[in-house]
Design a protein around this nucleic acid. Structure first.
Lengths: 324, 324
DNA sequence: CTGAAAGCGCTTACAG
DNA sequence: CTGAAAGCGCTTACAG
């Protein structure tokens, strides 16, 4: 069979098997009331013709696509891989196919992709991103069952929501450092996102004389100055990338991690294992969060009301916070 | 409009605008012969009803989906991001929508996803992976225009192919190290993939007394031993991950990079900028490769024969290979 | 257990 | 410039 030939349809199969196309449809969909003889004849015809169902027709007539669209902020983020895998495992188990799309770190692109996914006709969308506005989420949620994984500014009631408990995670980080005897603990961040702010606020509550450094504005250098001049001996970074950057620049300046500066990151991404010393980091149960998101999408598809789920993080200890 | 209501169709628009549904279809597709009055009435009806075209019906009847499927080995690989962006830019320019799928580093999953993408009904598939067999590529290529980006064992004539020139890239790396005065240059690798083998073979041709280390089998430790015992002063790693691992373990053992050991990686991924010292690395023109892949897919769609394209790599110098 | 009919929401000729 | 008809490849009742 080359691509030039006309693709066989259910009518071709019916003719070859000597039955009606309705019966072929029944057999193909695995319905019960089909005689063994017909079933065999149909299977043989399908095989010899190389028949494959036309998905567009199937979706048009059935009114459902069995497709769930997953929208990512961008492709580069190792953080989301396990979430996607969790979604996919749950989707496969429920008979759904997953298609991915991503916003390339650009809000306009992200919004366009969300619209494209819905226009395509997916049955539900899971947006693994914190970069959609409440209005955007609400508008999309009117058109399709929608679940957000992450922490946008605000999530409308009509939209499902899965996130980790940033406050609990920040507490794990701060208390870990305090237990190790650190008193002057800094916070390093690189955005004003809600997840970051939640982590920072918890940090502020738990630490005496908070010292905060914005790495976008030379904060890394100022932080390392403070290690030398101000007795700062530990830093809680809002994510692993920032933590890795601090470890790298500390090395550039001869500041030893963890002896001179203990470092804790957030997200427990692969990066935490690739740098030296390895990063102690707060881990989100990403696979579980993905499965929960898919479960919520399914529940909405069956008429259930959107709900919110907050996952508990845990601390993964590595050398960056300990006397290795 | 809530999700419970029936979604408006072209017939609803026709009724509201007081015209036939054929005319609505013409107007919506931007055909020329529609009066301004009708056009306005239709636009107003579309607006007030919140009409959106049903993609499944459109695709069924038009026989094309304007969708290209992009298949990735896995999501985790920073290497492929720029390739995907290159594909997407070219796709958008040509009026195509891109949907992504990935194999989760598992060949069976990869093959299943490829089949699912084709069954879905995409117009073309671009497989950004080196992990499909010649037979798998040939079978898929019979069903849909197919372009591979990467270096699988063998690519059938009937399938388009875009890759970088691994031999040239390896030459850049080896000659860079030799120009810096290194005589005992090692090669570190972690797979037997064709791209790796090509890089290794070129390395062998250019270096006296090749020393090769498989990092899966304790090669990193043996390599670092050789730095101490055997005068090895430089290493060409088959990719940035391996290079980063060597830099990390060198640091663990007090071996200074680049003073005791110069390191060159391959792919120029983000990782190269995140570790210290930064990695000198061979860069593939990934955006260009993605654009070329989409151009090839388009050409095949218009009846053109599949072709092969080999992109020229270049060396990006950072501190890991120089006297910083 | 099986088949004929109607219909999903569009586009595509074709006639006027 | 516009409309009526046929058809894309399926599924869904419904009758037998």
């Amino acid at each position: 069979m080359t691509r030039a030939e006309r693709r066989p349809t259910i009518v071709d199969v019916a003719r070859a098997a000597g039955v009606s196309k309705s019966l072929v449809s029944s057999a193909l969909r695995g319905e019960s009331g089909v005689s063994a003889a017909s079933r065999d004849a149909i299977a043989a015809a399908v095989e010899s013709l190389g028949y494959r169902s036309n998905g567009w027709a199937q979706r048009l007539v059935s009114g459902r696509s069995s497709l769930v669209g997953v929208l990512l902020t961008d492709l580069r983020n190792a953080y989301q891989t396990d979430i996607v895998n969790g979604i996919e495992d749950a989707a496969t188990a429920a008979g759904f196919e997953v298609i991915l799309s991503h916003g390339r770190r650009d809000r306009d692109v992200l919004r366009a992709r969300l619209g494209a996914l819905i226009d395509l006709g997916v049955d539900a969308v899971i947006a693994v991103t914190g970069h959609l506005s409440e209005a955007e989420l609400a508008a999309a949620g009117e058109r399709v069952p929608l679940v957000v994984v992450g922490r946008p500014e605000e999530v409308p009631q009509a939209v499902g929501w899965v996130r980790n408990d940033d406050e609990a995670g920040a507490r794990l980080a701060a208390e870990h450092l305090r237990e190790r005897g650190h008193e002057r603990i800094a916070f390093a961040f690189g955005s004003g996102r809600p997840a970051t702010l939640a982590r920072r606020d918890t940090y502020r509550d738990l630490v005496d004389e908070p010292r905060e450094f914005d790495v976008r504005e030379g904060g890394t250098a100022l932080l390392l100055d403070a290690v030398a001049d101000d007795g700062v001996s530990a830093v809680f970074a809002a994510n692993d990338r920032i933590a890795a950057q601090i470890v790298a620049e500390a090395a550039d300046r001869g500041i030893r991690v963890p002896d001179d500066l203990a470092v804790v990151g957030y997200d427990n991404t692969e990066l935490a294992t690739l740098v030296r010393p390895g990063l102690t980091s707060v881990d989100q149960p990403r696979g579980e969060m993905g499965a929960e998101a898919m479960a919520q999408a399914l529940a909405q598809l069956q008429g259930g009301a959107p709900r919110a789920f907050v996952a508990a993080p845990r601390l993964v200890e590595r050398a960056s916070s300990g006397r290795a």
